[in-house]
Structures are given as C-alpha cells and as structure tokens.
Design a protein around this nucleic acid. Structure first.
Ligand SMILES: [Mn+2]
Ligand SMILES: [Mn+2]
Ligand SMILES: [Mn+2]
Ligand SMILES: [Mn+2]
Lengths: 224, 224
DNA sequence: ACTATTATTTAGGCTTACCTAAAAGTAGTC
DNA sequence: GACTACTTTTAGGTAAGCCTAAATAATAGT
C-alpha cells in the first residue's frame, strides 16, 4: 500500500497535476523552474516516482511525465487540503487573499485527515477557494467548470470572473484593489493590437481596469 | 543569526525544556526514550546543538544537557505554538482534549509567525491550553504558577486542579470521563499505604475518583 | 544534412538525521 | 579497589533530496 508521501513528493505531484490539466506532458525544466531546483534533481525524482509500486507517473525519457491514476489521486488530495486551508484562513482567521497561498503551501503537508474534515465542516463544505479554484470534495471529485480565459474574450463581450492566479501576492493585491474578484461581472472594452493589453469595465462600479496579456491569460471568466 | 530550526531540533529543544524545568539536567537516555530513537542519535544531536553559534545547550559528556538562553527561547517559541494550537483546535474546530496533542505536535512546525498571531488574536490571547498548561505570551513570558502535585496533598486537603498530563489520549479520556479537568475543585479522601492509590472527591458533583500514584504525580493543584 | 543551441540525463558528492555495533566511561557492591 | 551493570560515546553506514559538472539527446536555423 502507498505509504505516506513526503512533503516534497506531494508538491511534485501537485505541480505536475497543474501542468498537465490540459492533457499535455509536464517537462523537467518546467518543474525545475516552478520548484526552484536543478533539472538534475527533477529528473531524479521523476524517475523515482515512475518506479514505485504503484507508479505515480509515467515517464518517457526526454519527453516528460504525466500522472497515473494513483498520482492524480495523491495530487487531488493535497490540492484539496491546500484550497481548504486558503479558504479557512480567509474565512476564519482574517487573512487577505494574497497572504494565504504561501501559508497553505506549508500547512497542507502537516494536515491530518481529521483536521481536513473539521475545517471542511466548519466552512460548510465550500466549493471554491478564495481565488475561485474548485475544492475537490471528500471523494476527490472536482467539478469541471465551463470557462474561458480573458484573452479569448471578444470586444464588448461581458462575463463573470471565475478564477484568478493565486501564487503571486503582488498580483493579488493589484487585482483586489481593482475589484477583480471571482463573481464580479466585467466587460471587455478594448484590446491593443500589438501588445494585447486589455481595458475592462467592472460593471457594478463602472470602473475601468487595465490588464496585460500575461495576466489576462490566467484569469478565467464565464461568458455571458 | 539563528537560522530556521528543523522540526526535529525544535522537538529536541522542547523535550529538553520539559525535562529541565525543575533545574536539573536532561540525560541522553531520557531523550532517546521520549523521542523513540537510539541513544547514539541523541548524543550526536546534543553535541551538534552545543556547538552552534550561539549554542542552544550546554553539554557535559556523560552528564547531560541544559538549555542556554537561546535554547530556552527557541523552546518557548515552539511551546507557545503547540499550546495555542491545542487551544485553537478545541475552541474553534470541535476537537476533544485527547485529540489535540498529536495534531499540535506536527502543526507546530508548520506555523508561521502570522498564523501564530492570528490564532492568538481570535482566541483572545488565552493564558492556558486545554490541559491547563500556561501559554507563553508573544514576548515568551510564561507565568510561574504556584502549584503542587496531587501526590503531595494531605488527607482531607482540598484543591483546585491546575493541570493534567497532555500526551496520552487514553489518560485524557479517562480523566475527562471522571470530571478531572483544570479548574475543578477536588478533595483527597484517602491514600492507600503501600501503592499510594488515591481516592478523590469531585466537590461539585460529589463523585469519587481513583487515581494511581504515577498519574497523580502528574496532576497539579492549587491547595486551598 | 550539419551545426549550434537548448533540454535532459548521468555521474559523483554533500548534508541531515537516523541506525547498529563496539568501545569507553560511571556507579554501585563487595 | 576491583567487578559488574548500565549509560554514553565513537565509528562507520544508510536513505532522502538536494547540488554541480559532464555527457547525451532533441530541436531549430541554414
Ligand atoms: Mn494556492
Ligand atoms: Mn506545499
Ligand atoms: Mn500537548
Ligand atoms: Mn513536534
């Protein structure tokens, strides 16, 4: 049976899950970048995780990796804890949404099943974390949400913000100040031709917000 | 400057603090027992911790160790987190007092200064944890409390329970069922001559409780 | 197709924190 | 003061998870 995975390994699996949600492969260098360690260390770990019984991922030399079902479940388990923690910190301990990711990144590895269950209960089984990411339920089922990147919005098209990137506190503080939160209705006013910078209208307040293409690609909306 | 201490080291220092609160020395084998590791490993770590700059403890070969001021502060820091966590889990997440120690033993190492501060605040700066142990304040000041072990109580002498041992869930469930909680008034009814078993009266309920000498030595009261 | 660049893997090492086995020190008993 | 039982230390070794440097594979430009 799968013994307890180390914090490192839990983070590897979570990263690989995020990188392969689109169906592709995660590469050595992407992982090395994200985790700020050397590519050699990543290769080592990927080989190790593909040789366990059962394997957590399938590894093709020089191509990349993808999670097995065992790997996906392990990733969702830690993702559930991460997102529950973020929600808990905001809802019950007065954290702002830019403070919670780093904290959850550590605490997720110290969280027992009991604590997970109690937090879930006192929060009323929340479906989304503060950044709009869905929280897998206790069976690790995670809803598939119909959504598009801001980058795909057409001029004058409106939509409701579903999720924003969650790792960078600076970005989150900026978005918060602009009123760009999950649930907020926006409308695309313009997109500059060369650098794809967007001007958005926050419908409720009438305020205008400028979002670059890199950030815009990471914000998702429901069109309509 | 003191870099971040590893979870292991934090636990070593906390254990040594507990073993030397009476002013004595902590020995290699006591620590090996408590931490369930080999004496050789303990020796190794004690030497290491006495050779840091600044040293966390003073080590005398074959005699034992005692904390330096740096060691004491590190121990109190982690003890504060441990006890705040225990209180938080009981007060805010519906834990029973026998469930919190094991959980806190892990979480204490994953707790940021910010989380410590927020928990302290939402709890209203509690002075005691669920087992009656004092929580060091944010300056690491810890109150000295006038108290005696149950073992020192004279027949017919009464007192208020101050603290109970906190590590063993079974013991805690037993004490809980008997009504032996911090704050409860008791009176010593009898003590058997050979094995020192005590019969106690819970004043409020009129119930009688039997406590052996080993457990009795770990429960403290304020006489009166 | 060849070469330059970039990505990945292999090889060899380091640190932390544990282990066992053997050596050495301490203390209590005669 | 010597013997014995017990505790502690030393010596040598392991596993994780990281590192750098060197070797190899993949990719892109001409
Ligand atoms: Mn996050
Ligand atoms: Mn993490
Ligand atoms: Mn405790
Ligand atoms: Mn601990």
């Amino acid at each position: 049976m799968p013994k307890e995975l180390s914090p490192n390994i839990q983070d590897y699996l979570k990263r690989i899950y995020e990188l392969t949600r689109d169906g592709g492969l995660a590469t050595t260098s992407e992982l090395a970048d994200l985790m700020a360690i050397s590519p050699a260390s990543v290769t080592n770990m990927l080989q190790k995780l593909s040789n366990t019984e059962p394997p957590y991922l399938t590894y093709t030399k020089h191509q990349g990796v993808r999670l097995t079902e065992a790997g996906r479940r392990a990733a969702l388990k830690i993702l559930r804890r991460h997102r529950l923690l973020e929600e808990f910190l905001v809802a019950k301990l007065g954290y702002t949404w830019d403070e919670v990711h780093a904290e959850a990144e550590i605490l997720e590895h110290a969280m027992s099943p009991l604590l997970e269950e109690r937090m879930d209960a006192v929060l009323g089984h929340p479906e989304f974390d503060p950044h709009g990411d869905p929280i897998p339920d206790s069976n690790l089922d995670i809803p598939v949400i119909q959504q598009t990147s801001l980058a795909n919005l057409k001029i004058d098209q409106g939509g409701k913000i579903l999720r924003v990137p969650h790792e960078d506190p600076q970005v989150l503080r900026y978005l918060g100040k602009c009123g760009m939160r999950p649930g907020v209705e926006i409308k695309l006013l313009s997109r500059t031709p060369y650098d794809q910078t967007m001007r958005l209208l926050i419908v409720e307040t009438g305020e205008e917000v400028v979002i670059g293409p890199k950030l815009g690609g990471q914000i998702t909306v429901r069109v309509g």
